[in-house]
Design a binder for these strands. Structure first.
Lengths: 252, 252
DNA sequence: CGAGACTTTGACCGTAGTCAATTTATGTGG
DNA sequence: CCACATAAATTGACTACGGTCAAAGTCTCG
C-alpha cells in the first residue's frame, strides 16, 4: 500500500460530495471535528467493511483511503464494481448480508457514520442527508460508465477512462496536484475492475507510458493532456452529440 | 418483432414485482382496469421512452413488451445496461434528459404511469409505491450481475447467464410455459448487451444448441436443465459458499 | 537480509473481432 | 398468395486482442 492517501483534504472542498460537508465543517469548527474523530472507524487494507459497527446507521462516509465494491465467484474470479474515495458515501444496508457483494478496503481506511455527522450541531440533518444522497446517486451513475468500459471499450480505452474518472473525482475533493494524483491500486485490482488479466493490464500500462499518454510510477499518476485522453477514451463526450445520436436512433 | 409478447399475464402473478399489483387488480376489478387502459402509453419497437408524457409521474410500469436501458457512443458502439420486462418499473427522471442513457422499446411496448396506478381506488398508494420501489431495487441488483457477466464471464457463460435471468424474471410474472419462454431479441441486441460481436453471439448460440444446452428458434427459448445451466454459467450460486469465500478473502 | 507481494517479460495459445458474402426469415404491397 | 425489399441470421477466411503459464526481476517491510 502507498504510505497514506492524504488523510486531510485541506484544500477548498467543492460541493458535489458528501466530503464537502466534512471539509466545510473542519474549517468551521475544530471542536466538532474532534468529536467526529472519536467516531471514526478504521480498517486495514483488505478488510471487509461491514454494516452496523456498533453505530446505528448503515450509511457511511469515507474520510480517507480507498475502498471498492466487489464480488468474488466460486472459482476465484473477481469483479470490482466501483471505487469509494474520500468523500464518497455508501449504504451498507444493501451490501454485506448475503455476501454476493462486499465493500473491501483497498488501503488503510477511515470511515464515519453518516448519522453521526448529521447529528452534529454544526450541520443540519438535511444538509448531510442531501450530500449523502447525491454521493449515492453519483455512484450509481458511475456504474453505467463502468458497464460501458468493460462492455464496449478496448483495453487502452478502459484504463484511460478509469484514470480520468479517478482524476475528476479526486480533483473534486482537492486530492490532486495539477495533473497528478496518488493511486493506491495494484495492477491486479485494475484487472479485476476492467475485466482484463493482470498481465494484459501491465502491458497496456506500458504501452500508454511509451506513448507518453500517462506517467505512472510509485503509486502516482500524471495525465498530461486530459483533453486528448478524454477523446481517446470516450470519456464524458459532448452532451449535444449524444442528444443528436439518440434522435437518430430509429426514426419510426 | 415477434407477433406479440403476451399482452396479458393471465396467470397467477407472484409477488415481488410491480406487476403483481396490476395482476391482482385485474382479477379484482375489471372496471378499474378499463380506466387504466385509457392511460396506457404505447410505443413502437425502436422508440425512445421519454419522461413526462403529459402525465405527471416519471415512474412507469411496463405492462407488456420489452424495453432496455442503453447508451450509444460517438462511434456507434452501443451498450445495453438492463432490460425492462412486463411488471418492471423504472424511474425516467434519472434517465432521458442528458441522453447519456435512454430507455428504448425493443418491441411494441405498453406502459402505464405508476402514479396513475397508485391513484386508483383499488390499491393503496403505499402498496404501489412499495411494489415499484422493490422493482427499482431489483433492477439495481441485477446490474451487478450484469457487470460480472460482461467483466468476468466467458461468451458461453454470458449468454446462458442472461437467459437464466430472463427465465426467472418472466417466470415471476407468469410469462413462461414450462422450460420455455418467448424472447424478442435480435442477436445484435444480445451482442450489445453482453459486450460481444453479433457474429460471435451467433456462433456461441449455435454451439450451445449443438451441445443441447438450449433450444432456440422462432423467438422462443427452452432451457431444458436449468440446474445444470446455472452451474455452467455461475448463475445465482449458493449463498453460503459466497459467505465462506468472503470470510477467507484476506484474514489480516 | 529475507519473505512475500507486485511488476515485468517471453513464448505460445485461443477467444473473439472484422469483413464480406450468402442464406433465411419477415413483412409489405399488389 | 406471390414478388420484392429489408432485416436478421449464418458462414468462411483471416486477424488480433487479450489470456495463460512460468520465470525473472523489483520493491517493501519486518
Amino acid at each position: 500500500m502507498s504510505p497514506t492517501v492524504a488523510t486531510a483534504p485541506g484544500s477548498i472542498a467543492r460541493p458535489a460530495t458528501a466530503f464537502a460537508v466534512l471539509g466545510g465543517l473542519r474549517q468551521a469548527d475544530m471542536n466538532h471535528i474532534r468529536s467526529f474523530w472519536r467516531n471514526v472507524v478504521r480498517y486495514t487494507a483488505g478488510a471487509i467493511v461491514y454494516a452496523g459497527r456498533g453505530s446505528a446507521g448503515r450509511r457511511i462516509i469515507i474520510i480517507s483511503g480507498w475502498a471498492c465494491e466487489t464480488r468474488i465467484l466460486a472459482d476465484g474470479r473477481r469483479q470490482i464494481f466501483s471505487f469509494l474515495l474520500p468523500g464518497d458515501a455508501i449504504d451498507l444496508a444493501q451490501m454485506s448480508g448475503v455476501g454476493s457483494r462486499a465493500v473491501m478496503a483497498l488501503t488503510r481506511l477511515e470511515v464515519i457514520d453518516a448519522e453521526i455527522v448529521a447529528a452534529s450541531q454544526a450541520h443540519a440533518d438535511q444538509d448531510v442527508a442531501a450530500a449523502v444522497a447525491q454521493a449515492l446517486r453519483q455512484r450509481e451513475d458511475r456504474m453505467f460508465d463502468h458497464m460501458v468500459r468493460i462492455g464496449r471499450l478496448t483495453a487502452k480505452e478502459r484504463v484511460l477512462n478509469l484514470l480520468l474518472e479517478f482524476y475528476d473525482r479526486l480533483d473534486a475533493v482537492g486530492l490532486t496536484k495539477g495533473d497528478t494524483f496518488r493511486i493506491p491500486l495494484t495492477q491486479e485490482v485494475f484487472a479485476d475492475t476492467l475485466g482484463l488479466s493482470n498481465v494484459h493490464i501491465n502491458r497496456t500500462l506500458q504501452q500508454l507510458r511509451r506513448d507518453g499518454l500517462i506517467v505512472l510510477k510509485a503509486g502516482s499518476v500524471t495525465l498530461p493532456d486530459r483533453e486528448r485522453l478524454a477523446h481517446l477514451a470516450c470519456y464524458e463526450q459532448d452532451i449535444d452529440e449524444q442528444e443528436a445520436r439518440l434522435d437518430s436512433l430509429r426514426p419510426q
